[in-house]
Design a protein around this nucleic acid. Structure first.
Lengths: 340, 340
DNA sequence: GAAAACGTTGGTAACGTTCTCATCAACTGG
DNA sequence: CCAGTTGATGAGAACGTTACCAACGTTTTC
C-alpha cells in the first residue's frame, strides 16, 4: 500500500511546477502540448488522482458535485425506482449521490441530513418524515438546495414534487362505489404520514359524494408492514358483516391484503381490492388488483430537474409540482357473487 | 444565504482560540465545562457545522467515513434490498454511502469508481461487470478496500461474496427432471455475466447427470429485459415440439416468462417454470412459481461486514464467502396434463 | 521552598489544491 | 531597436481543519 501521490509528486517527477500539473489535470489552456504530455506521463506512472476534498476546500463557493438523497426505505420498490431516476439525472450533471433511509424517523433524518451537509453536498432530495424540519431550514439558509418528494415538509419553503394522492384515492373508491360497493374497508399505513392522510381524505371524499359515512369498524390505520396488513385484512374479513371491497393505502398494505385474501381461499373472489401504488404482477393475481399507479421514475426525474435547476442558480419562488396518478382498472371491482 | 461560519468565527464569538473550538467540536477532553458551554452557545448561535472536507484533508491517513456502493441496477429489487442492508451496516459505523449503478457497462463502472475514489472513500462494495478491473486494482494499491459482490472480479485479489449459483441452478433443474421433465427450456440473461454463466453450467450439470444433452433449440441467451424474455418464452412455446418446463436465469427473465405464459392463457398450466431469484408474489401466481431464492439482505450485510473488517485493519488473505441458495418448491414442477 | 507535574489554553505548521500575481522569453510593430 | 504584447510557467497565499508543542497558573512532591 503506497502513499497517494500528490500534485507536488507529479510536478517533481515531470520536472515542472505544481501549478502546471494543476493546469494539466484540469484541462486548462496555456500549457505547451509537449509539457502537458510530460505531465500526463508522470500522472500515469505514479497513478495520480486528484483529491477532490482538497480541491473542494480551496475553490470555495464552487460546487462539490455531490447531492444527497434521503428516502423512507430504499428497499421499497417505489423508492428504489425513484432513486435510480435521481442517480441517472445526477450522472448527467457529473454528480455523485449520497444515499440514506430515514425509516420514518425524524431523528434518523436529522442525523443523515447532518452527515450529508458536513460533506458539503450541493443539494438534497428528501422524503420528509412528519415533524419539524428546523434543521433543513438551517441548511437551506446556508445555501444547500432542498427539494421535497412524495410529501411536503412542514414550515419549509422548498420545491416539492407530489402526486394527487387525494384525487387518486377518491377516483379509486368512486370506482368501487360505481360498481355497487357500499361496505368498503380502509386499510392504511401510519396516518401521520402526509400522503397516507391525503389518501384517507380521498377515501372519505368518495363517500361524501354519495352522502354516506364509512363504517368505523371498517377503518384501520397504522399498518406498518405486510404482515400487519395481512392480519388487519384477515380480521376485517372475519367481521359479522364483512366489507365487499377493500382500499389499501400503499403497496405494502395491498400485498398484505392479498396475502390475507389468498390464505382464506374459500373467500377468494368475494371481495374487491383496490390499492394505491402499482406493483409487479398485480395484473397476474386472481382476481387482478386494480391500482392507483404513480410513476416513481418520473417523480425522481422531476425532483432532480428542479434540484439541478436550483443548483445552477434558479432563484424563482419555490414550486410545487403535482404529478398525476393513473387508475389502472383490472376488473376486480365488480360486485362478486356471494360466497358459495 | 449566509456565508458558512468557520471554527474561527465561532472562536471569535466565544472569545476563545480556534483550538479550543476544535476540541469542543470533537468532544476532546481538557476543556473546562464552563468554556465548553460558552463555545457550544456560540456554535448554536452561528449555526456552525464542521467542514468534514477540511477535516478529512488535515487528518491524513484517517478514515473519511464514506464508502461507495456500485451495483448493476439499483431499481432491481435484488440490488435495492442489498443496498439497504449495506446502508444499515454503514450507519452502525457512522459511515455514509455513495451509490451508483453500472448498468453492466465497464466504462460506467470505471467512471463511478473513479469519482468515488476522488472523494477518498474508505472502501468500495462492487458488483463487478465483465472485463478487466485494472483500475480497481490500482485503487486497492492506494489503500481503498474493495469487496466484490454477486460476481468475482477478474484478476483481483479481493474479498468476494457469492452464492452457489451453479448448485442452485443444478438443484432447480434436477427438481424438474425428478418430476419427469426432459424437454426443459433455458431462458437466460447475457452469459458474459459470471453468475449467469454459472447458472447455465448448473443447468447443464443436471442434464449430464442423466446422460442427456439439452436440446439446442431450447436454449436462449442474452435476454436483457422482461420484454425480451417474454418474447423468447413465447417463441419457445410456439415450437413444433415445445418444452414441458422452463428454467429462467433471473427474476427479470422469470417475470417475462410469466407474462408470456399468462398471455397465452390457453397453454397455462401446461408448462412448469422454475426461476432463479425470489420475487414478490411468486407464490400467488397460478401455478405458483418455484424459485431458487437468494437472500440479498444477507449478501449485503456480509459484504459490509467484510469491508468494515478490512477498513478496521484486517489484513488476512482475501476471503471468498459463498452463501447458500434455497430451492423454494411451489408445486409447479409436476408434469402437467397435455393441453386440452 | 524550588522542582516537577498537571490541567487548560493558544500559536503555528501542515494537509492538497486553486487563485492571483509575477516573471521571463519570444514576438510584434513602428 | 525598444516599448508593448503575448504565452508559458512558477511562487506564494489562501481554504478550514487538526497535530504538535509551547506557555501559563496551580498544585503536588521531596
Amino acid at each position: 500500500m503506497i502513499k497517494r501521490p500528490t500534485m507536488r509528486d507529479v510536478a517533481t517527477a515531470a520536472g515542472v511546477s505544481l501549478m502546471t500539473v494543476s493546469r494539466v489535470v484540469n484541462g486548462e489552456p496555456g500549457v505547451l502540448p509537449e509539457t502537458a504530455a510530460r505531465v500526463e506521463r508522470a500522472i500515469r506512472k505514479l497513478g495520480y488522482q486528484r483529491n477532490d476534498m482538497a480541491r473542494q476546500l480551496r475553490r470555495k463557493g464552487q460546487l462539490s458535485e455531490t447531492i444527497g438523497l434521503l428516502v423512507d426505505d430504499l428497499a421499497n420498490p417505489f423508492f428504489s425506482a425513484l432513486t435510480r431516476a435521481v442517480e441517472d439525472a445526477a450522472r448527467l450533471h457529473d454528480c455523485v449521490v449520497l444515499i440514506g433511509s430515514s425509516n420514518d424517523s425524524l431523528a434518523r433524518e436529522r442525523e443523515v441530513v447532518s452527515a450529508f451537509c458536513a460533506r458539503r453536498v450541493d443539494g438534497l432530495i428528501v422524503v420528509p418524515v412528519a415533524g419539524s424540519h428546523r434543521f433543513l431550514k438551517d441548511q437551506q439558509a446556508l445555501g444547500v438546495k432542498v427539494v421535497c418528494v412524495d410529501r411536503p415538509a412542514e414550515n419549509l419553503a422548498a420545491d416539492t414534487v407530489l402526486v394527487d394522492n387525494r384525487r387518486g384515492a377518491y377516483q379509486a373508491v368512486r370506482h368501487l362505489i360505481n360498481q355497487g360497493h357500499r361496505r368498503i374497508g380502509y386499510l392504511g399505513d401510519r396516518d401521520d404520514i402526509w400522503a397516507v392522510r391525503e389518501r384517507y381524505s380521498g377515501f372519505n371524499d368518495a363517500f361524501a359524494d354519495i352522502g354516506l359515512v364509512p363504517d368505523a369498524a371498517l377503518i384501520r390505520h397504522g399498518l406498518r408492514s405486510r404482515l400487519e396488513a395481512a392480519a388487519a385484512a384477515e380480521a376485517m374479513m372475519g367481521l359479522p358483516v364483512p366489507p365487499t371491497a377493500l382500499f389499501a393505502s400503499n403497496d405494502l398494505v395491498t400485498m398484505g391484503t392479498v396475502d390475507a385474501l389468498y390464505s382464506a381461499r374459500q373467500r377468494r373472489g368475494s371481495v374487491a381490492l383496490v390499492g394505491f401504488d402499482e406493483f409487479a404482477l398485480a395484473d397476474k393475481l386472481s382476481p387482478p388488483v386494480t391500482v392507483v399507479a404513480q410513476d416513481p421514475a418520473a417523480i425522481g426525474a422531476t425532483a432532480a430537474q428542479l434540484l439541478f435547476g436550483r443548483i445552477a442558480g434558479d432563484t424563482s419562488p419555490p414550486r410545487e409540482v403535482i404529478l398525476l396518478t393513473r387508475l389502472v382498472v383490472r376488473g376486480s371491482g365488480e360486485i362478486a357473487p356471494a360466497p358459495t
